[in-house]
Design a protein around this nucleic acid. Structure first.
Lengths: 215, 215
DNA sequence: GAGATAGGTGTGGTCTGACCACTAAAAAAC
DNA sequence: GTTTTTTAGTGGTCAGACCACACCTATCTC
């Protein structure tokens, strides 16, 4: 009988090895969001490990938001959502002020990077689409920005931004402002590809006017 | 007998409740990095839950990097380090084709963000220190950039950059170029706080000359 | 035949008890 | 006093037992 743990020098815990195996399994079978993964009992049997070890791995991935389990049905790949995770991390690590500052600064800079990308990349059509959504009041501030970030067409930035946004909102209560006029101006500036105007409006939106020369 | 699970409408899983309890416990007792938390068996008894449930909670927190367990000793609060976590998330998230391009683009943009931060933040003294290290040939390209990133004084950026750099090096065969002259020019540009010059040199360093107007 | 009902099966959720491997501190031997 | 041995405590893992729930299917009722 060959156990997963035997394949290593045993300095790796079984549940970590299972996480690894799951990763490879997902990648090999090209499983996507919503797909089902084998049951706990089947995994336990296939990997020659105890079911409790399988559960430790699955629970950890669940807390991370990477999978979702439904009693009586099974375990499914999930579209990664950082919120829950971020909330947890936040209460654990975001105590010191410097960390909060870093989060906010990083988010602003990444947002501006995305604006640059949009300026160079997005076509007018897409921007007009966002504009119409805003005009119909279908987007709040966060949703609007997410649309912009997506237009930057960089998946990594989208992911990072989503996480940072959650941190940001948990640190910075607030912002029900939603000034539609400013947002519309920002879109306009992007459409005409006026970089200076774009960033001027952005700083206004984020209340960075005072710090305008800092970034 | 009152179980943790009974105190709720039971729509919350026990291990999540334990995570919550642990959080409160840590906060109440003001436990800090390095401190020990109760043993699995004690927690199991105190919270009236099975040890396996306690373990599910602890393993999840461990994968998150929030605690550390040492066999034979116990479980300890840990100084949070995101790298392992981000690495894990990365392998789960970065599977698509476009990912490589996104990684490179993201790294470049973050490096430029850091340059901006350094321009506004770093004092000459620190820069001269880096300069002397370069002159003594004590830094390779990556190490040099890491010094710069650190001068930007944003912990989050440092973390993200380190991860991206690993991906970058595995994607981009590689650049043993190490042109000391260009690096020294970059430092000089930063010292005199000449933004245009700085970015011009940077693009040269990263061979972005062709794309210069894209970013 | 259509619909409602009752089982059966598979799944996650949880607990218990049993080992093992390892560490550190106490006890014993010198 | 120093070394060795024992012992108690801790995490690591497994196996088996229930439970609650979702889904399917065969059966019953009309």
């Amino acid at each position: 009988m060959v156990k997963v743990s035997d394949s290593l020098v045993a300095n790796t815990k079984v549940y970590l090895e299972i996480v690894k195996q799951l990763r490879e399994m997902i990648s090999a079978d090209n499983l996507k969001s919503g797909d089902k993964i084998p049951s706990e009992r089947e995994l336990s049997e296939r990997l020659n490990v105890g079911r409790s070890s399988v559960r430790e791995a699955l629970r950890a991935l669940e807390l991370l938001g990477l999978i979702e389990t439904r009693r009586g049905e099974g375990t499914f790949i999930r579209d990664f959502q950082g919120n829950q995770l971020v909330q947890l991390l936040g209460t654990f690590i975001l105590q010191d002020e410097k960390a909060k500052h870093d989060v906010i600064e990083t988010m602003y800079l990444i947002e501006m990077d995305c604006l640059r990308l949009v300026l160079n990349r997005a076509d007018e059509k897409q921007l007009l689409k966002v504009k119409s959504l805003v005009e119909q009041n279908q987007l709040n501030d966060d949703e609007f920005f997410y649309q912009l970030i997506k237009l930057a067409d960089n998946f990594l930035f989208s992911r990072i931004w989503l996480i940072l946004k959650d941190y940001y909102n948990s640190v910075q209560p607030k912002n029900v402002v939603y000034n539609r006029n400013i947002i519309l101006q920002l879109i306009e500036a992007l459409i005409v590809k006026d970089e200076k105007w774009t960033f001027s409006i952005y700083r206004q939106l984020r209340n960075l006017s005072i710090l305008s020369d800092k970034y």
